[in-house]
Nucleic acid binder design. Structure first.
Lengths: 163, 163
DNA sequence: CGTAGATTGTCAAGCGATTTGACAACCGTA
DNA sequence: TACGGTTGTCAAATCGCTTGACAATCTACG
């Protein structure tokens, strides 16, 4: 029996998404720890995100992660000091910087990808290749939905008044 | 074009789960705010969780949410002061307490459920009833997987030595 | 051109959620 | 009855993040 049989109706999507994500994140940090990257903490996942920030500007990273530039700067400062990335001047814009992964940074990104792939392999074994492929496909479609795409990460500020 | 076409392979499950969950959480707080529960913040979702904590012990809630008893106590203290729940003595155990929702607490839980149902309705419209049903079913199976069920939320402590 | 407004990164201060540490009260069991 | 484990809580500290302010720079428009 799973946790989702209850008197209040069918399982809610929110709960169904949370548990797997928690597991994945936990295994990501565990694998990073095992690989020797013990100074990477979950907060840094805002930087090591899907579209890798290599060559991007801190400001864009902040917007993409849905946080303020200051918060992103805080994380980037940590990761720079730990030799995971560098912030170099943008030749095209004196104000701006560009983020570049170091060797260590690329290694972390690689380790994260491998961790997720390992989980995916486990899930593929448990669910069977067809169901797993179907699940991934449906999740891609879900992410491509207006309902999801519309409400993408936005910095907690920006009240977006209607003119 | 969606964000998941990239040179590094198929979309990673982690990223596919994160975006929808972020959207759902954002809409949950928005709907709660609109319903007048302006003092509920995302942190409280650790309490208003899927198996509702009504009648449960704070310690079990903490374990279920993967946080320390102190952190859970902090949140429960807030919610008690805001009249969303009460902590009453457990008649069977003098040390322990039991959590009971107040009317307001039940209203919050109801509002959350309705918010998610609304999102589900939107998604059902966009994906079509069959695909949406399939997605939910696959997510249930995913949650029932050993890979997911095994690594359920655990308090950040407990190093679990092996002897 | 030149200047007004927006953008970028950063310093500083503060807050809130969470952790660690310690502790008294209580339970279960030997 | 003594003892190890559990429960809730007080206190202090940490950490991720926000708000606020600011100089430097870019951009658009007169």
């Amino acid at each position: 029996m799973n946790d989702f049989e209850s008197p209040i109706g069918p399982p809610l999507i929110g709960a169904l998404l949370r548990a797997p994500l928690d597991t994945i994140r936990a295994r990501m940090v565990a694998d990073l720890h095992d690989a020797g990257f013990t100074d990477i903490v979950p907060a840094h996942f805002a930087v090591f995100r899907y579209p890798p920030p290599d060559g991007r500007r801190p400001s864009d990273c902040a917007a993409g992660a849905g946080m303020t530039r200051q918060a992103m700067g805080y994380l980037l400062g940590q990761l720079e000091q730990l030799d995971y990335l560098t912030r170099e001047d943008d030749p095209a814009d004196q104000r701006s910087k560009r983020i570049y992964f170091t060797k260590r940074g690329f290694a972390v990104a690689q380790t994260i990808r491998e961790a997720v792939r390992k989980i995916e392999a486990d899930l593929e074994t448990e669910l069977g290749p067809e169901q797993f492929a179907q699940l991934r496909e449906l999740l891609v479609k879900l992410n491509d939905t207006d309902t999801i795409r519309g409400q993408r990460p936005r910095p907690p500020t920006a009240p977006s008044a209607s003119p």
